[in-house]
Design a protein around this nucleic acid. Structure first.
Lengths: 185, 185
DNA sequence: TTAGTTGGTTCGCAATCTGAACCCAGCTAC
DNA sequence: GTAGCTGGGTTCAGATTGCGAACCAACTAA
């Protein structure tokens, strides 16, 4: 505030592109995410998913169909004669793991009881706990979400001057905020 | 694996604890996530959110109420006389950022058109693009989701032997998979 | 022949979402 | 002093979606 615009009421409704919105059209709801979680655990078959999640059959069929359609799963026949299928993560699907991991870690940190997190994720070779904090390969250091800023993106201009915007804002402290709000104009 | 069980149908329905499920009870749906996205962009007021998201008032009121209840937002009066309120992220809420960032990055990578991602997130001090891949502080290297494994967690046992399970599985390659399926028993 | 397995679809009822209308307090302009 | 706006809601009827239970189809095993 203080100065000019920064009205906080963005004029556009980002019609061409908010990647979060785009991703949410595929990662639709709770069930979809739980199906993905199970997929990462190696559960691949309709009935196993149904049993494990206690999900209504119609919903499961629908979600699997739409995940296949969007390229997150491939449906593969694993047996003929009684035709049987399984659903496997594609590379596109595999790369959803940071989303699941960050959900899990947030749940661990803020929602797990006194006994601590139910499960730990570790780097397999060395068994070190996974840390999802942000890491900068230029500065060679980890940093917090308050140090994130956003650039117009798209096409060329990569490592140009960062135009503070969109994300960020150390809302943690009361009134004072770096004010990255002034997005456009 | 290979040997006995590996039934892929987990006996329990993790009643005490899957942190992903726990997190999903708070991060309920698409609208909640979009509200959070806007919060990170600095939009804090009912009407600004409503306008920006074009969200039905009743839904917005409900989601804000539940986010306050769960501790993600605080409701603060920013003006008396006409009493007016705003919703601010708590530290708990701020730490949801990795979830949003990973959604955004996945969307950028897999869903953005030819023109590339609509916006880039950068490390503010140096303007380097953010990389959410996993980093191990012991091995001092980045690693892929296929190298994630999970341990029983809870309480004590930290850096013990990693018991492959839950997460992971290089589903990327066809038939052969390390098969970490055998979770419990 | 009967039962069981796997992967679904169909159906009717319940819960949820949605847009539009309404409410209220306190301005502000006329 | 009243009409109209703003901010932050609530209420309501109708559409959409979720849900459990039942059913189906193709096969196998006893």
């Amino acid at each position: 505030m203080s100065t000019a615009n920064n009205s906080a009421s963005a004029p556009q409704h980002q019609p061409p592109g908010c990647s979060i919105e785009a991703a949410l059209e595929i990662v639709r709801d709770r069930w979809t995410i739980l199906i993905l979680r199970d997929a990462f655990r190696g559960i691949r078959r309709f009935d196993d998913l149904r049993r494990d999640l206690e999900i209504p059959r119609a919903i499961l069929a629908d979600r699997l169909r739409s995940l296949v359609e969007s390229g997150v799963f491939v449906k593969r026949q694993y047996q003929q004669r009684p035709e049987r299928f399984e659903y496997r993560l594609t590379p596109m699907g595999m790369e959803l793991s940071p989303i699941l991991v960050s959900l899990m870690q947030w749940g661990d940190r803020w929602l797990s009881g006194e006994e601590g997190p139910p499960r730990l994720l570790v780097h397999e070779p060395c068994a070190t706990e996974i840390d999802m904090s942000f890491y900068c390969w230029t500065c060679e250091e980890a940093f917090s979400p308050t140090q994130i800023s956003s650039q117009p993106g798209a096409v060329t201009a990569r490592a140009l001057h960062s135009q503070p915007a969109l994300h960020s804002q150390p809302v943690l402290q009361e009134g004072d905020l770096k004010n990255n709000g002034a997005t456009e104009s």
